[in-house]
Design a protein around this nucleic acid. Structure first.
Length: 692
RNA sequence: GCCGCUGUAGCUCAGUGGUAGAGCGCACCCUUGGUAAGGGUGAGGUCGAGGGUUCAAGUCCCUCCAGCGGCUCCA
């Protein structure tokens, strides 16, 4: 006698078990037809699920009432499309063994082990898609049936897929009492798959689908295990939705910092120079320099002092810090001393001997610095420190080198040489909280000024079950509490993640997404008990004895490379005036106005505005198009009329029509204001006020 | 590093084993113009590198390099 509670609070009682579909039918046939699944007590389930006891029921339709995509509906759809794709693939490549095929936020994938002599290629997509279309057209129902663990295992063993057997074992491990299978059609007759479900009612509900790409993956995510092929696809309830999605991907591509970086001439990567090594072109350098100047000025206000260090340090330094040889794989190979190499060669050492010495840390030489802390530590330690001197805050735009795997490199966001807007704070235990707070304040200021609001904050804490952490647990408790409290004040999207702490201390990371949805860590604040210990750092306390300081590593931007890459995408290349490589372009309407244009340019240049004059032999229309494509904030069209009145005709980026004319002196003052206020006032506003 | 895809003019890209192409950009000429592409002429190529198959390779095969999408990794 199930009593079913609907989302509006109303209830329906039945004297026999019913399916969710039956319940929908009692409300209306059209609703029942529109349903693709349901939530039973909040759990996503098949529409055919039998309800035999009291529960809450939320029917899932293709679109929510306000005509938005329902994420639950898309989830069911995509999981189901993955099954259809898997069936189509197995028709084309009979030896393909299925592993795991979950839905994603914007599609789905299926990990599949292909026979070695028949890998899947992109050229197979068309054939797979046409097989899928057939399956969709047949409108076969997704039919669930359950078997006991024993029977199910027998069945899987007879089918011989070690991957599915493993999936079943994993399910049993986490407490499954039976195994469920889904047939696309009739069990025993049609294609089927071990699957937890749930699914949409039938294949005919798949309105539009597309296979997107191939990638490789590892079984269980373990690089030493079997290599699988991951086939990515997506699907929607309608062709229109799919097209909209594909258009959106195209749009995202236009914002991609690698595309814009080339178009706007912001940076260059040259394969002759090396992979992952950014060459900052003049335009990109402007952005970097403005950011550095700005953050540098803020640091000075906050009591930081600048330092400069070389890009290399002796291996002994990194042996003390613990970075060599333990992290040797992610570093450039050491620069070896000539005498050492000669010695090695005289001794007749082979390459493998040398390699062994390398992994034992048993060589002499220098390392391209993989981080800045050891150098800064040595500056701290270069003189005795009193508790009255603390905190000591050493800052540097420090360039570091890391040997990232070639497949991991990506534009400006993952590189092998980058500059950290780094600083190391050496403080007393009781100063940690205030210092962490100060660091976060800086990050917050940076993000707010730039309008970066779409980020999340990750507070990395200890994994309670691990013993890898150094330092006194009582200190950890205090440091974690300090991080937690400081992060909470941000009021942003904060998540605490146990196990995400560094082995040397808790940390707070700022994570943003790029245009294709990949997450990148930018700013970071890390408390460190380890390095002060390893380097035996000290200060003299009020009690006239030595005490150990605590270090805080912090970088509000993270790296300038990654940060600028993210900013390019954030602004879609249209930087606010103060960061724009070219702030104003003067467009004379013909050569006759070149002299006045030059005069305008000189006035702007005089107050440090980055301006240019477009003297190309082209019509105004063409010059405006070019200026717009370069996303220059202001284009000043000047002709005889303007020269006569000493005015400029102003056109702002992103505004279709020109704003009107303004006296040259007024424009110069207004644009300087806009720059100095970082956009709090603007030339555009001034026009709006004048017209209000 | 791994799997797949891609690599042709400065950029974006066509190119059926048989003479290397287009648009944009660039140079020059005409045009001297008022808010998103005026017209003409021309220069520009070791088709990523190396090897192989073939009478003949940008095109087919192999190796390497680089980029892209993922996987793994990111002190």
């Amino acid at each position: 006698m199930p009593t079913i509670t609907l989302p509006d609070g109303s209830t329906k009682s039945f004297d026999h078990p019913v399916s969710a579909y039956d319940v929908a039918m009692t409300i209306g046939e059209r609703l029942a037809k529109a349903c693709v699944g349901c939530l039973v007590d909040g759990e996503l389930s098949d529409l055919s699920t039998t309800l035999d006891s009291d529960c809450t029921l939320h029917l899932v339709t293709e679109k929510t009432r306000d005509k938005q995509d329902d994420p639950n509906a898309l989830n069911l759809l995509r999981h189901s499309t993955a099954h259809v794709m898997a069936e189509a693939i197995q028709r084309i490549v009979p030896g393909a063994m299925l592993v795991y095929g979950p839905p994603l936020d914007n599609g789905f994938y299926y990990d599949i082990a292909f026979p070695e002599d028949r890998p899947l290629k992109e050229g197979d997509f068309e054939a797979i898609e046409s097989e899928m279309a057939k399956i969709v057209k047949e409108d076969r129902p997704f039919t669930r049936y359950d078997m006991s663990v024993n029977d199910g295992m027998e069945k899987l063993k007879s089918e011989g897929s070690k991957y599915k057997i493993d999936n079943a074992e994993k399910a049993v491990e986490v407490g499954a009492e039976s195994l469920s299978f889904y047939a696309t059609g009739e069990p025993g007759k049609d294609w089927e798959d071990l699957c937890r479900g749930p699914h949409i009612p039938s294949t005919g509900r798949i309105g539009a689908f597309k296979i997107m790409s191939l990638a490789s993956s590892y079984w269980h995510g373990d690089e030493n295990s079997d290599r699988l092929t991951r086939v990515y696809g997506t699907s929607f309830f309608s062709k229109k939705d799919l097209d909209a999605h594909l258009d959106q991907l195209e749009e995202a591509k236009k914002r991609d910092h690698r595309v814009l970086g080339k178009k706007l001439q912001l940076f260059h990567i040259d394969e002759t120079v090396g992979q992952g090594l950014i060459l900052w072109t003049p335009r990109g350098s402007v952005i970097r320099k403005e950011l550095q100047n700005w953050i540098g000025a803020e640091l000075a206000k906050m009591g930081y002092t600048d330092v400069f260090c070389p890009h290399i340090g002796k291996l002994d330094l990194y042996k003390t810090s613990g970075h060599f040889p333990y992290y040797a794989e992610s570093q450039f190979v050491p620069v070896m001393e000539r005498d050492f190499l000669k010695h090695v060669s005289d001794e007749g050492c082979s390459c493998s001997d040398l390699s062994n010495m390398m992994s034992e840390g048993d060589i002499n030489g220098y390392l391209l610095k993989p981080m800045n802390c050891p150098h800064h530590i040595k500056i701290y330690d270069s003189q005795p420190r009193s508790y009255r001197d603390l905190p000591v805050r050493l800052s540097e735009f420090g360039t570091v080198y890391r040997w990232e795997q070639s497949g991991e490199l990506s534009g400006m966001t993952r590189v092998r040489c980058f500059t950290v807007d780094d600083a190391h704070l050496f403080c007393r235990e009781d100063q940690i909280e205030a210092e962490v707070r100060g660091c976060l304040k800086l990050v917050k200021l940076a993000f707010e000024t730039l309008g970066l609001s779409d980020f999340r904050v990750r507070v990395g804490l200890r994994d309670p079950d691990s013993s890898k952490y150094v330092g006194d647990p009582a200190n950890w408790d205090k440091a974690e509490a300090a991080c937690r409290a400081a992060a909470a004040e941000l009021g942003a999207n904060v998540s605490e993640e146990p196990g995400e702490a560094a082995f040397y201390g808790p940390k707070i990371d700022f994570v943003v997404k790029d245009v294709i949805g990949r997450e990148w860590q930018l700013g970071t604040v890390q408390v460190d008990y380890n390095l002060p210990e390893r380097f035996d750092l000290s200060y003299i306390g009020a009690d006239n004895t030595k005490h150990r300081p605590v270090m805080i590593h912090r970088a509000p931007f993270g790296s300038l490379e990654r940060f600028v890459g993210v900013l390019i995408e954030h602004f879609a290349g249209a930087f606010p005036l103060w960061l724009s490589p070219e702030q104003v372009r003067v467009v004379p309407i013909s050569e006759k106005s070149n002299d006045y244009a030059q005069e305008v340019y000189e006035q702007l240049n005089h107050i440090g505005i980055r301006a240019s004059v477009d003297t190309h032999d082209a019509r105004v229309q063409a010059k405006i198009k070019n200026g717009s494509e370069m996303k220059i904030p202001y284009l000043l069209v000047v002709g005889p009329r303007d020269a006569e009145n000493r005015q400029v005709s102003v056109r702002a980026f992103g505004v279709e029509k020109d704003l009107g004319a303004m006296h040259l002196d007024e424009f110069v003052a207004a644009v300087a204001d806009e720059r100095d206020s970082k956009g709090a006032t603007s030339v555009k506003q001034r026009f709006e006020l004048a017209h209000a």
